[in-house]
Design a protein around this nucleic acid. Structure first.
Lengths: 202, 202
DNA sequence: AAAGATACGGACCGCTGGTCCGTATCGCAA
DNA sequence: TTGCGATACGGACCAGCGGTCCGTATCTTT
């Protein structure tokens, strides 16, 4: 196995970089305002360290996202309903989308940085591949849903980071409003209309 | 009126730049590979000219998009059904989305460049504002559609340039497949399910 | 034809992501 | 504890980008 434990200072620096990047991205309006040199300086680390640890800018952002995403990932893979496995698809799909939306809202700076990396990057990230696959499989099990593959893409597109940031930042849409709107939209697709006011938890 | 006719050479250069940029974007995989200097050189023009005419990179791309988008814009504003005004909303909405999708597909390099400009740019462009407003108004007139504002955003999100490019480029989805998928998806939202095989024209 | 207005173009600048390698630190073995 | 190979550090350094500037060329008007 090529897995070897990292040196102590390396591990500490990695954490420091994550923390610094998180803070900087959260403070700035646009992710482009945060340079690699800024992050290195804020973390008290040399630029070389930063690039050796993560390869390049998008590597850093991806790693940071992955780290912050772990709780949700766990909740989905082995948590309890409605997010966890074993939940009936018509209930799990909205829960999943809601979780994604909440993440994108709460970490919009980070998500924005991730999706703004490269040209067609959002779809080359493993996150996306995973979530899309899961969502597709769930939709497959719901009668009345045609073309679950595209539908999964389209539903996820409704949670795009820049859309969320735009609605939250320019249009003053609140978190709960957004959640409700997405839930309604999803219900429309699934044929599960009617219900109201199911935005608790998180 | 502050509108003054431009000098002859200026007009010719403008056209030359548009042509050069179009070609270059179409040839390259990612829009980032095309530099301003490249465009200037291909157009047989100095870099200064380019920046004076369009302000900056995103200005160029926006202007180019606007130019290429004009036919559709006309068709929507004063064309004949199903795109033009006077068409009943349940028929016009899918037509509009189909037109947008076709444009994004046929000009994906350009659309990709546009959406990749800045951080939250896609939503600051006038295109988007216009199309969203129109779509919202149409949805408003369709009974059974809740929250037409968000729904309009979500539907447009399904036509995002990078998603289209990804599906077309990596997943080998054809133009007609995509059109059908989007039409189905739209029908689901509108409550107009059932029909099949309505991908002609364009 | 001549002058004023307008546009040209490429040298130039600041800054960014990314590289490189001499030096410091770590972990292990004796 | 000491010593030594392996690993990681850090900041000077580089190439390339978007964008600016201003002396010069071209147009337009009378």
């Amino acid at each position: 196995m090529p897995e070897r434990k990292p040196r102590k200072d390396a591990a500490r620096n990695r954490a420091a970089v994550f923390a610094a990047a998180d803070t900087l991205f959260a403070q700035c309006q646009s992710p482009e305002e945060v340079t690699m040199a800024d992050i290195a300086a804020a973390a008290g680390v040399g630029k070389g360290t930063l690039f050796r640890a993560f390869g390049d800018r998008s590597g850093l952002i991806r790693a940071l996202c992955e780290a912050r995403l772990e709780p949700i990932r766990n909740a989905v893979e082995e948590g309890s309903p409605p997010l966890g496995p074993g939940t009936p698809p018509p209930e799990r799909v909205p829960a999943l989308l809601d979780a994604v939306l909440c993440f994108k809202f709460d970490h919009r700076h980070l998500a924005l940085a991730l999706e703004g990396t490269g040209a067609d990057s959002p779809y080359r990230a493993e996150h996306y591949e995973r979530w899309h696959a899961l969502l597709r499989d769930l939709l497959e099990q719901i009668p009345g849903v045609t073309d679950s593959d595209f539908t999964a893409h389209a539903l996820l597109a409704a949670t795009r980071a820049d859309l969320v940031a735009y609605l939250a930042g320019e249009k003053d849409v609140t978190r709960e409003q957004l959640r409700l709107q997405l839930a309604d939209f999803t219900a429309g697709i699934l044929g599960t209309r009617a219900r109201r006011g199911s935005a608790a938890e998180h």
